[in-house]
């Protein structure tokens, strides 16, 4: 409508109108994100916030979330870092396929992930059944299940971020380290990891944030038991029916934590 063949100087109205036609959809986009966040802040009862946070279900949920998300990040660091390094240096079809498989949880509905986890580690699951029979260990509805669910959805974020950072490490460093006598492990630990540290930190923060927000896979696979599997997001969802003020208070806390994490990332590792 406002794009025509006349040069911009032909009329002042034309560029103005064309800019308006961009600003309107952009503003709608902003509103769709900002309005809910503002609503949360507006409706929060700030004076009574400490009191609401003292509700009996809040602290166990926060503590469980802290423990499980930290464990998830540690597992990602321990197994995800070597995996990312191998993928960063891998060539060939197998690596391409592996990369694709590892990316699935990024796009999979978390509930489906929960169902998959149940079929794997559930009491009648592929791994869960023999585990129960031989060792008498059951995983579902325990904090271990929460961690498994969080690792399933969050570690791929970590691996993708760290692999990207490690691909940026000049391959000639690998060759040089090898001629200096470094084993593949030494090269990984002393060259790849130090040079990819910003990426590792960013990946860890991303994975942690994703694990903190995990809902679908957790509630499907681990259940929603106060103190054992009810993480902060599950507590918010549950509290919304019985104690909405506590739900709002907990939501504000999680919003704050997310913004702090984002801020730390922006300052150092994300432009």
């Amino acid at each position: 409508m406002s794009i025509d063949s006349r040069p911009a100087s032909a009329g002042v109205a034309s560029p103005l109108r064309s800019r308006t036609s961009l600003i309107v959809p952009a503003a709608v986009g902003v509103a769709l994100v900002v309005v809910p966040l503002t609503a949360l802040l507006l409706r929060a009862d700030w004076a009574a916030l400490p009191q609401h946070l003292a509700a009996p279900t809040v602290w166990p949920a926060v503590r469980l979330s802290l423990v499980t998300t930290t464990t998830t990040v540690l597992i990602s660091l321990l197994v995800g870092t070597p995996l990312a390094w191998l993928l960063a240096r891998a060539t060939g079809r197998a690596a391409t396929w592996l990369r694709a498989v590892l990316t699935v949880p990024l796009v999979l509905p978390p509930v489906v992930g929960g169902v998959a986890l149940l079929l794997a580690y559930g009491r009648n699951g592929v791994v869960g059944a023999p585990l129960d029979e031989i060792l008498g260990v059951t995983i579902p509805f325990t904090p271990v299940a929460v961690v498994l669910a969080e690792v399933f959805v969050a570690m791929p974020f970590y691996v993708v971020a760290v692999e990207g950072a490690m691909r940026q490490v000049d391959r000639r460093y690998d060759a040089l380290a090898a001629t200096l006598g470094a084993s593949p492990w030494h090269t990984f630990a002393r060259v790849a990891v130090p040079l990819a540290t910003p990426g590792i930190a960013a990946g860890a923060a991303l994975a942690w944030a994703r694990a903190l927000g995990e809902f679908g896979a957790t509630i499907t696979f681990a259940g929603n038991f106060v103190g054992t599997t009810q993480t902060a997001p599950l507590a918010v969802y549950t509290a919304l029916e019985q104690d909405p003020e506590a739900a709002i208070a907990l939501s504000v806390v999680m919003l704050t934590v997310s913004v702090v994490v984002l801020g730390a990332l922006r300052g150092r590792w994300v432009r």
């Binding site: 060759a175 040089l176 090898a178 001629t179 200096l180």
Partner: peptide
Amino acid sequence: PASRRTGLLL
């Protein structure tokens, strides 16, 4: 490469 005794300078 790690088991050879080479020094490399580029």
